[in-house]
Simulated assay, not measured.
Amino acid sequence: MSAVPVKYEQEGGIVILTLNEPDTRNALSPEINDALVEYAAKINKDYSVGCVILTGAGEGFSSGGNVKKMQDRSTASVQKAPVDVRRYYTEGIQRVPVALYNLEAPIIAAVNGAAIGAGCDLATMCDIRIAARSAKFGESFARVGLVSGDGGAWFLPRAVGLSKAFEMTFTGDFIDGEEAARIGLVSKVVDDAALMDEARAMAARIASHPVHAIRASKKLVRDSQHVSLPVSLDMASAYQALVQTTFDHREAITAFAEKRKPKFENR
């Protein structure tokens, strides 16, 4: 067990979160889950953060559940009441999809190897996904007689469509980065050595914009997926009314008129 289950590093307006359990290929653990929830709350309060990158230490993004510990839990779970197992999920790993869904800053998954089971689901919780050529993905819960208990049933169809989500779920097949790009699971595939450079470059482009406008845009696009057009337009008007009062909006307009680079202050 690493002393730091998730590394938190900030480079200017970019935060890099690195799952830091390489010995288990970053299998999700209570410690990793707690850290992700804590850091999401921290970032929401920190307007110096314009974009987040999530990646894994070592050779994998995340192998999902720890199979060895799963075996111990499987033996013990038959002795537990179903309500206790349910609470294990709601008070444990299910806090992660809620925290990442409510993360205000854009988040990029830099998938550097295997993203399997809950690790695949974790990638889909991010706004943008970039894959290394060595990456592979699998919605593999059926292989161990389980269902996705961490939000994958909600996130995956929104990433790849219902038919492909069913195919991945029912077969448990693994797919490589090129296939992931073809079905829309990732935005692009790059050489392994270029993965973090590509993620940083994209994060820098995002973080170069006014933070309040970007965070409001994320909420608007996300929430518009679940409402009617009139409601989406109402939300757009409300967010526009807010961001038009910011210093950074005025600075952007002034800088454009003066043909200079704007100096944003995140206010």
Rank of each mutant, 00 (worst) to 15 (best):
V96N: 01
A40Q: 01
V52E: 10
R86C: 00
A35T: 05
D223Q: 02
T90V: 04
F137L: 14
I183G: 14
A194H: 15
D72Y: 08
A193S: 13
Q244T: 04
G64K: 08
T18V: 07
F137C: 14
K188E: 14
D176Q: 07
V144W: 09
S74N: 10
G184V: 09
T171Y: 13
G184Y: 13
N44Q: 06
F264S: 00
F155Y: 06
N44P: 06
Q240N: 12
A165N: 01
M70G: 15
S63T: 12
A216Y: 06
G184W: 13
S148V: 08
A252T: 00
S232F: 02
E179H: 12
V111H: 08
H212S: 05
A255V: 01
K69E: 15
M125P: 03
V6D: 09
G177A: 15
Q79G: 05
V6A: 09
R250P: 00
E59S: 15
F170W: 10
T55W: 14
A216Q: 10
A216C: 07
A131W: 07
R250I: 00
A76V: 07
M235V: 03
E9Y: 10
L17G: 13
R250E: 02
A257W: 00
M168G: 03
A241M: 07
C51R: 06
I183F: 15
M1C: 07
G172E: 09
A81L: 12
A203N: 05
S140N: 12
G184T: 14
Q244W: 01
K136V: 11
T246D: 02
P22E: 07
H209C: 11
G161C: 05
E31L: 08
A41W: 02
V227W: 04
H249Q: 02
T169E: 10
Q94C: 07
L17Y: 12
A216P: 03
C120T: 13
I214P: 04
P22D: 10
D84G: 03
G117Q: 06
I14E: 05
V211S: 04
R25S: 09
L36H: 11
I128A: 05
G113E: 08
A41Q: 11
F247D: 02
K69N: 10
G119C: 12
S2G: 09
A257K: 03
V111E: 07
Q71N: 05
K263R: 01
A213G: 04
N26T: 07
S74F: 14
I130W: 11
K68D: 08
H212E: 06
F141Y: 14
K164H: 03
H212I: 06
A135D: 12
L54M: 13
V243P: 07
D248W: 01
I53C: 06
E139F: 15
S232A: 15
A76S: 11
I32N: 06
T24R: 12
I32V: 14
V186T: 14
G50L: 01
S63V: 12
V189C: 10
L185N: 11
P106D: 06
I107F: 15
D150V: 06
V111G: 09
E91W: 00
M70K: 06
D173K: 07
P157G: 01
K68A: 13
K45G: 04
R143L: 15
I128N: 09
D176M: 09
L195D: 14
A181K: 14
S187P: 03
L146V: 03
I16A: 09
F247W: 05
A238M: 03
V231G: 00
L220Y: 08
N66A: 06
Y88D: 02
V111R: 11
E11W: 08
Y47D: 13
V231F: 06
